[in-house]
Amino acid sequence: MKKTKSRLISPLVQVARVIVGVLFIFSGAVKLVDPIGSQYKFEEYFSEGVLNIEFLIPYALKFVIILIILEVALGVALLVGYKSKFTLNSLKIIILFFLFLTWYSAYYNKVTDCGCFGDAIKLTPWQSFYKDVILMVLIFFLSRYNRYIKPIKETLLPGIIIFWAVLISGVIMYIALYHLPIIDFRAYKVGTNIPEGMKYQGDGKIPPIHDFMLEDEQSDLANDILKMDKAILVIASSIEKSEFDGFPEVKKFSLEAQRKGYKVYGVTASFSEIIELTQKNYNLPFKFLFCDETTLKTMIRANPGVIILNKGTIIEKKSWRDLDDIEL
């Protein structure tokens, strides 16, 4: 009887193990290429209008880095059978945390996109919740039949695989944090034509690019700028939160671009007093236009960062750290 039960349960355990492990690795992987996006998402969760734990907002990025690394490491650990009891207990804690967030988002309609799979796959709050319910059931099933999970080899190999998974994840995240995401899943990726992205599709869905504006004190200049052959947008979504070391680099780049015939505009969601103070302190050779902060954060993860346009098509995006790599 026990052997019959074992023959039935063991294959189910292995299938569930692969499903859970792969989903956690995928979830972590699509977020580690863009940890800033996950930071913004958790800042939204921590905000006054959602969970009202604003004291955690300054720690959002650290929290995201730890969470992403854990997702990848635990997913890999489950697949290679490393310390299965500890791994599954850790997965229980994480899935219960996710389950609460997705339920809260769905029930109170607070955060319309949980960011479970970054910007790669968009799920509604209820879809995210049901996905986490299924994962929770699978994890508790695996925990019940933990004895059927064996290491791929009774050597140091499982630990070595996890070490390399964490190391590679850390390198990818470092690149994304100090430069730009190595894969861009957003509507403003290089090669995108912004005017085309603003058009409604035949089914009446909201276009992928919306709330795009470039306003001065009098009017929206977006249409004019999107028609230019050589236009540069210096994006500083929130000047007060900018990396101020970047402004001298931006100034040098902007002057060179203007000498080569480019029209350069700053774009921010900050107030005029902060704009004037920043322009004075760094002697920036361009004026600032206004755009919604969420839109600017979506356009580029750097603050400040640069986007180069040719007749509305994004031909280059760079963090301020990489402006020397641009050939004008």
Score class of each variant (00 low, 15 high):
Leu70Ile: 13
Glu256Asp: 15
Ser128Asp: 13
Thr294Leu: 13
Ser143Val: 02
Tyr40Leu: 14
Lys150Cys: 05
Gly75Asp: 14
Tyr145Thr: 02
Asn281Glu: 14
Ile182Lys: 02
Asp292Phe: 11
Ile183Trp: 08
Ser38His: 08
Phe100Cys: 09
Ile274Val: 14
Leu78His: 11
Leu289Asp: 00
Asp203Arg: 04
Leu70Tyr: 10
Tyr188Arg: 10
Glu54Thr: 15
Arg301Tyr: 11
Phe212Lys: 04
Met1Asp: 02
Gly204Asn: 05
Leu277Ile: 11
Gly28Ile: 06
Lys227Tyr: 04
Thr102Val: 03
Gly49Glu: 09
Thr102Glu: 00
Trp164Thr: 13
Gly49Lys: 12
Glu243Ile: 14
Ala187His: 08
Glu327Cys: 15
Lys153Gln: 08
Asp245Ser: 13
Val133His: 03
Lys189Pro: 03
Asn310Phe: 10
Ile315Tyr: 08
Thr4Gln: 09
Thr155Leu: 05
Ala120Pro: 13
Ser238Tyr: 08
Ser238Met: 08
Leu177Asn: 12
Phe247Gln: 04
Phe290Asp: 00
Leu78Gln: 10
Glu196Tyr: 03
Phe42Ser: 09
Gln279Trp: 06
Ile36Pro: 01
Arg144Ile: 08
Met173Leu: 08
Leu61Phe: 12
Ile65Val: 15
Ser128Val: 06
Asn89Thr: 12
Glu43Leu: 12
Glu44Gly: 12
Val133Gln: 05
Met198Ala: 10
Leu221Thr: 02
Ser90Ala: 14
Asp216Thr: 02
Gly197Phe: 01
Gly204His: 07
Tyr188His: 15
Phe163Asn: 04
Leu99Trp: 01
Asp203Ser: 10
Gly246Cys: 06
Thr4Asp: 06
Ile168Lys: 06
Ile69Trp: 09
Ile206His: 05
Leu23Arg: 08
Gly197Pro: 00
Lys41Gln: 11
Gly202Glu: 09
Ile93Ala: 12
Cys114His: 04
Phe271Arg: 13
Glu215Phe: 00
Ser10Gly: 05
Asn52Gln: 14
Lys41Phe: 04
Cys291Trp: 00
His179Asp: 11
Glu293Met: 15
Glu154Thr: 04
Ile66Met: 06
Leu328Asp: 11
Cys114Arg: 03
Ile36Glu: 05
Ala16Thr: 12
Met299Trp: 03
Tyr45His: 07
Arg7Glu: 13
Pro125Gln: 04
Arg7Gln: 09
Val18Cys: 07
Lys150Arg: 03
Leu135Phe: 07
Ile93Pro: 01
